[in-house]
Design a protein around this nucleic acid. Structure first.
Length: 891
RNA sequence: GGACGUGUAGCUCAGCUGGUUAGAGCGCUCGCCUCACACGCGAGAGGUCAGGGGUUCGAGUCCCUUCACGUCCA
């Protein structure tokens, strides 16, 4: 039986091995030698099964990497390294998500600018400053053209990405850096536009004018997945609506509303059909206070009987329930809130002829907040406010990055169907989730819950500057009005396009904005609409050949569907779901076979780490202080799907382990060389050595099983435990035997061979977790990288002949511990000699101890008589110890 | 209100399909400068496995229920 090892040679070992500098040393070597390069040619020749492909999350380039990134990316890297060692051709790309609002905000602050679509491109533009913005008020920002703005985004994200790359490299991420992309680069933009155009051609994407959530700060539409419900202070205002013509003697109907400023928008009062208090009013009409607009009282089950007065004021639009009522009850549209979050300037028709026209004119142009105060004052004056407003906490929808509650405005937007309005499609998309193996499995419920609970299609258009342009134009009719339902689309060959600066085929730029001409769609796609195509972008779904033809890279079928999507659970509803939707439409399949979901990192007090709490640590500092291997050890101790604490203690344990690997390896290789051509396995004859390797074989099997079930933590744990036993017991037991004797001494040779065999496997078992220290030690006596060797197999260390019993090492180790305990209790040095001892132990194990007695005597310094007696537990009796002679201080 | 997860030594966590006196590391206490390692080595103390009920010869492990915490969705 010969082990499948890389070439070995006489060991060259540093005098004092150290972790310091290993990251720089090996990081450079790995980069120079392309250690982690994906073998494209081999993939193209071979079968899909020989490849392991990873849909790496592209981090947001404009943020900064935090310990959560370190945590989850390490999880993936450990799996990637394992898969590489079992012989798979690992496709491990890295991309940057430099798209979207975070980048825009960062660019605005960094350069002191803001985008203004009305401005022309200035080719010689120089930003006011770079970084170090002084106190920057929105008004001070310099307005610049969209193109100039995008150029700045481009400039800054490239800088940010360099910092990220350096950190990832130091952490030991085994990406293939040649397979990289940026979600704003030409290839990504073209891919995103091509996929969108195909969605459009197949009817999966559509345009609609509809009420939708709108962020007044960022001036953009917002999708359901970007919502965040937050507590928001408000007040119930009890407001009177008047019956009939409001004649005296009739009791008004009181509603309780938190948004009195929307009274001009009221279209109905709505109560629950079972609510007897209002049953008599259904079908009749009431007049709104102040404005005197006549609205019906209608029944709908979404009215909450126990909330407020039990009867709600339906306005267009105060919240999402209003939208449902408006749609289902076919109510009129009476919007007064503009996209800026202010009351519109013109007095609307339904108010102009009524008593409130003057009041409305006063409200015009006011913010929602100011309008509310004005309306409340007017209600007080007219007597329509019953009592005083009562403060309340209500849940309001916010854009996840926004600071003001979302308004609902009607606008023309693009959508991609995602099952939110189509039960059959919803079922299919839930089914796509079933075909992905989630790790841990319960994470699938997050997916199914989200998909099942969707209440609308995916809104993909955003009114932003920096992003992938929606690749369509609209013809203008003879009156100069856009013909929305006949969008002009570009050819796939011409992608990427920017409809704002380029004219569509068949038109001249001079026709832009003119009757009979065209306009370009000014919007960009949701960031997720691009990042949801990360598998397609990385794997070359779109490729442009030299002749300009659009095809697909033949590699695509060798890596797609990908083997795994690693990501955090917070973006199951966005990134994971969107990727499934896109792959389903384009390929009819799930985009990956597995989804590996990492948990969050919490601070030691179990709080979420955030800048505002001041408990954020920067990965650079952490890596410098503890070493990359130590930080990886901490990360790898966290199982998939489980939140973990930021735990310096665990990093110290990892550092200790890494240092132990250095020292133990040095020791194990220091007993004199074995013959280079020797069959190591054949040299292992001593029963204790055979027991060690038998135990190691079991460990290899368990560690392998761990990785195969995505439980890398289990692999680390069994390997680590065994490694410490190897150090504390086995090394101690055999060192005397391995020392000193000549090369031809069979007992010594057995120990030395075992040490090498064991170390060889142990390093490979630890390599996915501790890439630096294992590479360092490997280099002492091997050619090539440990990361490109084969994963150890139990067969390598399972010797021919009589099967050895791994329990023997445990038995002799327990006996040694018993001897140590005697010395410890006597408060003596471990060097103290044992003149006499009677060892008690389980009868079934005593034979094992006898078989290893010479090693036990050497390690325990038992120089006198050693007797055995069966006992329930390990005990020592009749112990006679000889203290070590303390050397007299020299005079 | 719904879904999912978690609750095991002071702390961080293992305990897989139920089976002998519940494990590890850190921390703590005591001892040891043992020729790989003092960034080390050895030894020790610490738990009625959140509470209650049930199934079983036997439950931290399965079922029911209560409580606490977390995340997401309403």
């Amino acid at each position: 039986m010969s082990a499948d090892l890389t070439p070995s040679r006489a060991a060259t070992i540093p005098e004092r091995p150290s972790l310091d500098g290993l990251e720089d040393k090996w990081g450079r070597v790995w980069a120079e030698q392309q250690t982690y390069a994906f073998d494209r040619a081999k993939a193209l020749e071979g079968s899909r099964a020989e490849v392991f492909s990873i849909d790496t999350p592209p981090p947001t380039a404009s943020g900064s990497l935090h310990m959560g990134h370190v945590f989850s990316y390490t999880h993936t890297d450990c799996m990637a390294r394992y898969k590489r060692m079992v012989g798979l051709n690992v496709f491990y790309p890295i991309g940057w998500d430099d798209n979207g609002l975070p980048t825009e905000k960062r660019v605005q602050n960094y350069y002191g600018v803001r985008g203004d679509a009305s401005l022309p491109h200035d080719p010689s533009f120089v930003p006011p400053h770079r970084g170090d913005a002084k106190s920057l008020r929105a008004g001070d920002a310099m307005p610049i053209s969209r193109q100039n703005f995008i150029e700045l985004c481009d400039e800054l994200t490239v800088e940010d990405e360099k910092a990220f790359e350096s950190l990832f490299r130091r952490l030991g991420q085994s990406f293939d850096w040649t397979i990289s992309y940026r979600t704003i680069d030409d290839h990504s933009r073209a891919t995103a536009q091509q996929a969108f155009l195909r969605n459009l051609a197949r009817g999966e994407a559509y345009q609609a004018e509809a009420p939708g959530l709108w962020d007044v700060t960022f001036q953009t539409a917002v999708a359901q997945a970007e919502l965040e419900a937050r507590d928001y202070p408000g007040a119930y205002h009890r407001v009177a609506f008047h019956l009939g013509d409001g004649g005296a003697g009739t009791e008004p109907v009181y509603v309780e509303t938190t948004r009195p400023e929307l009274i001009p928008s009221v279209v109905a009062l709505i109560a629950h059909p079972d609510d007897e208090r209002y049953a008599g009013l259904f079908g009749s009409t009431v007049r709104s206070p102040l404005f005197g607009v006549e609205v019906p009282v209608v029944a709908h089950p979404l009215a909450e009987m126990d909330k407020g007065a039990g009867i709600a004021m339906c306005c267009t639009f105060g919240d999402l329930t209003d939208v449902i009522w408006w749609r289902e009850l076919q109510l009129p549209t009476r919007s007064v809130i503009t996209r800026q979050g202010r009351i519109q300037a013109e007095v609307p028709a339904w108010i102009a002829s009524g008593p409130g026209a003057g009041l409305f004119a006063e409200l015009a142009g006011k913010t929602v907040h100011a309008a509310r105060e004005a309306v409340v004052a007017a209600l007080r004056e007219s007597g329509d406010l019953d009592g005083e407003p009562r403060a309340t906490q209500r849940k309001a929808n916010f854009y996840e990055r926004g600071e003001k509650p979302l308004e609902i405005v009607t606008s023309r937007q693009w959508y991609i169907r995602n099952g939110g309005r189509d039960a059959a499609l919803n079922d299919k998309l839930v089914g796509q989730g079933q075909s992905v193996d989630f790790h841990p499995p319960f994470m699938r419920a997050r997916y199914s819950n989200w998909v099942t609970g969707l209440n609308g299609d995916w809104l993909v258009s955003r009114q932003r500057f920096f992003g992938v342009a929606i690749p369509v134009w609209y013809p203008l009719d003879a009156e100069g009005e856009p013909v929305w339902d006949r969008p002009i689309v570009p050819s796939e060959e011409s992608l990427p396009v920017d409809p704002v600066t380029q004219a569509p085929d068949g038109y001249e730029e001079s026709q832009r904005g003119r009757a009979g001409g065209f306009i370009g769609d000014p919007d960009v796609l949701d960031t997720w609409a691009t990042s949801s195509l990360s598998p397609q972008i990385a794997a070359g779904w779109r490729r442009v050949d030299e002749d300009g033809a659009v095809t697909t890279d033949p590699l695509f079928d060798k890596v797609f569907p990908m083997d795994v999507r690693p990501q955090g659970h917070d973006i199951i509803r966005t990134w994971l779901f969107a990727t499934i939707v896109r792959a389903y439409y384009e390929h009819g399949t799930a985009p990956w076979r597995n989804a590996a979901i990492s948990g969050w990192i919490l601070d030691p007090e179990r709080k979420k780490m955030s800048k505002s709490k001041g408990n954020v640590v920067t990965p650079e500092d952490v890596l410098r202080e503890h070493s990359a291997d130590a930080v990886r050890y901490w990360a790898a101790s966290g199982r998939l799907g489980t939140d973990a604490a930021y735990d310096v203690g665990q990093m110290k344990v990892g550092r200790r382990l890494a240092i132990k690997v250095l020292n133990a390896s040095k020791f194990a290789l220091s007993f004199g060389d074995v013959r280079a051509d020797a069959d190591l396995a054949a040299m292992v004859t001593d029963p204790l050595d055979r027991a060690l390797l038998a135990g190691l074989a079991d460990v290899i099997e368990k560690a392998t099983a761990g990785f195969e079930s995505w439980d890398y933590t289990r692999s680390l744990e069994v390997t680590e435990t065994f490694f410490w036993t190897f150090c504390d017991d086995y090394l101690e037991l055999v060192k005397d035997r391995a020392y000193g004797a000549n090369v031809d001494d069979a007992a010594a040779a057995s120990a030395r061979a075992t040490l090498r065999l064991a170390l060889d496997s142990l390093l490979r078992l630890l390599a996915p977790f501790l890439p630096y220290v294992t590479e360092e030690v490997w280099s002492w006596w091997h050619e090539g990288s440990v990361h490109l060797t084969s994963w150890p197999t139990a067969d390598e260390v399972r010797l021919a002949g009589e099967p050895a019993d791994p329990a023997m090492l445990g038995a002799v180790g327990a006996a040694l511990a018993t001897v140590r305990k005697s010395k410890s209790e006597a408060k003596l040095s471990m060097r103290a000699e044992v003149a006499h001892i009677v060892l008690g132990g389980p009868e079934s194990l005593l034979d094992h101890v006898r078989a290893g007695e010479s090693d036990l005597r050497a390690a325990g310094r038992i120089t006198g008589s050693l007797d055995y007696v069966p006992a329930q537990t390990w005990t020592a009796s009749d112990v006679e110890l000889i203290p070590v002679e303390k050397p007299k201080p020299q005079a």
